[in-house]
């Protein structure tokens, strides 16, 4: 049996489909017994779906660097 700490980290890992087979198995087993982690797992999935819907975009690091320099020059 794994701890809740370990289970919840694996749970976050599964949101990116990067948990290994053994990890997934141990997580499933833990979720069967642990109510708290089941709730957490459900919320974690919802966060993934919200992130998918929201379509957030960011500027690249180099573009941010240029912006920073522009500001510094004017300071």
């Amino acid at each position: 049996m794994i701890s809740c700490d370990e289970a919840s980290v694996i749970c976050s890992k599964t949101q990116y489909k990067e948990a290994g087979l053994w990890e997934k198995l141990r997580l499933k087993l833990h979720l069967l017994f642990c109510r708290t982690c089941s709730v957490f797992s459900k919320k974690n999935k919802q966060l993934t779906s919200l992130m998918g819907k929201a379509n957030i975009r960011v500027m690249s690091d180099s573009e941010k660097e240029v912006l920073k320099q522009t500001i510094e020059k004017l300071l």
Partner: peptide
């Protein structure tokens, strides 16, 4: 990396819970 991602996700769930709707 996974511990950091996990902490970030946990914090985000809490924050969205307060500011957006019941997650």
């Amino acid at each position: 990396l996974w511990v950091m991602i996990h902490r970030a996700r946990t914090a985000l769930m809490g924050c969205l819970n307060q500011n957006w709707f019941t997650l």
